[in-house]
Simulated scan of single mutants.
Amino acid sequence: MMSFHGIGLLPVFLVGLLGSVHCAGMCGGIVAALSAPGQARRAFPAPVRTAGAATFAWPAAATHVAAYNAGRLASYAIAGALAGGLAGGLGRLAGLPVLQVAGYWAANLMLVALGLYLIDAWRGLAWLERGGRVLWRRVAPMLAVLKPFDSPGRLFAAGALWGWLPCGMVYSVLVTAMLSGSAPGGAAVMLAFGLGTLPMLAAIGMAGVRLRTVLQLRAVRAACGLLVLGFGLLGLWRASGGLPAGAAELLCIGAAQ
Rank of each mutant, 00 (worst) to 15 (best):
G8T: 04
L10N: 05
P11K: 01
V12Y: 00
F13D: 09
V15A: 09
G16S: 06
S20Y: 01
V21A: 05
H22P: 14
H22I: 12
M26I: 13
G29S: 06
I30M: 13
I30L: 11
A32M: 12
A36R: 04
A40V: 10
R42I: 11
A43Q: 15
P45F: 02
A51L: 07
A53M: 04
T55C: 10
F56W: 08
A61N: 07
A66W: 04
Y68D: 14
A79H: 03
A81H: 04
A81W: 03
L82I: 15
G84F: 04
L86G: 06
G89S: 01
R92F: 14
L93I: 10
A94G: 09
G95W: 00
V98W: 08
L111N: 01
A113P: 10
A113N: 11
A121Q: 10
E129M: 05
R130D: 13
G131L: 12
G132A: 12
R133Q: 13
V134C: 07
V134F: 11
V134Q: 07
R137H: 15
P141L: 02
P141A: 02
P152L: 06
R154D: 12
R154G: 13
F156W: 13
G168S: 02
G168P: 03
S182Y: 06
M190D: 03
L191Q: 06
L198Y: 11
A202E: 14
A203C: 10
G205Y: 07
R212W: 01
Q216I: 13
Q216E: 15
A219I: 08
R221A: 10
L226T: 15
G235W: 00
A239W: 00
G242H: 06
L243M: 07
G246Q: 13
A248D: 11
A255R: 08
Q257G: 11
